[in-house]
Design a protein around this nucleic acid. Structure first.
Lengths: 109, 109
DNA sequence: TGGCCATATGGCCATTATGCCATAAAAAAC
DNA sequence: GTTTTTTATGGCATAATGGCCATATGGCCA
């Protein structure tokens, strides 16, 4: 074998983060937050779901350390704390496109 | 506003991929597959779960386009199709460490 | 203090994910 | 051809997730 593997807790930590990302609404919120900080009310309008739903989504992201939330007067402002996402998704989508393409070529069309 | 956002289907696609990653056992398998191709039986031994459980995990990864599986004699060999993962997790873990550190400094210890 | 805006939380229900067992299917070995 | 090895699938119980409503909390302003 001789494979360098990590510890179970580390895989669990990674899985927790991946799980926090694993929802369309949270993806949208993260993409928006990559451009600028937004308060919960703005994100609620953006997502178009119930305010309580958005609040729970944000709690998921906060608990995973992906966003940070600070009180600013009456509202809560959210900041993206992980800058790695944009590059990652660009990479993933480029690779998936490539894979699809070579798959089509292999089939003959 | 003037934010450049993507389409709902694109966020759904991203969320599907993130969801496919969102399990400790699948994280472990992906880390192993990043080092070399492995058959289902090897992955089953590595994960230490029931063979049917591992088979279902692999189906999740295959359906998401993250791994590819090809028959080789009696066994099925799995290949990682997304090379972006290692760099991504390194980035995430480095950023989280930094965030924890500056958080501690802000508190005063 | 009273009232309003912005968020968070609890409750409830429907849907989905996970794990194992049992079993089917496919390929190699005998 | 039967047996063995390797994967896949169906079934089922349990747990987790997501959504909304109702309601509590916190802060601002009159």
């Amino acid at each position: 074998m001789a494979m360098k593997l990590k510890s179970t807790p580390q895989y669990e930590a990674r899985a927790r983060i991946a799980k926090a990302l694993a929802h369309p609404s949270r993806m949208l919120m993260l993409d928006a937050l990559a451009q600028r900080d937004l308060c919960v009310c703005e994100l609620t309008e953006l997502v178009g779901a119930d305010q309580s739903t958005v609040s729970k989504h944000l709690a998921v992201l906060r608990d995973a350390g992906v966003v940070e939330m600070r009180r600013q007067g009456a509202q809560t402002v959210c900041t993206l704390k992980i800058c790695c996402l944009n590059k990652f998704w660009e990479c993933v989508e480029a690779v998936l496109r490539q894979n699809l393409q070579s798959q089509r070529q292999a089939v003959g069309r």
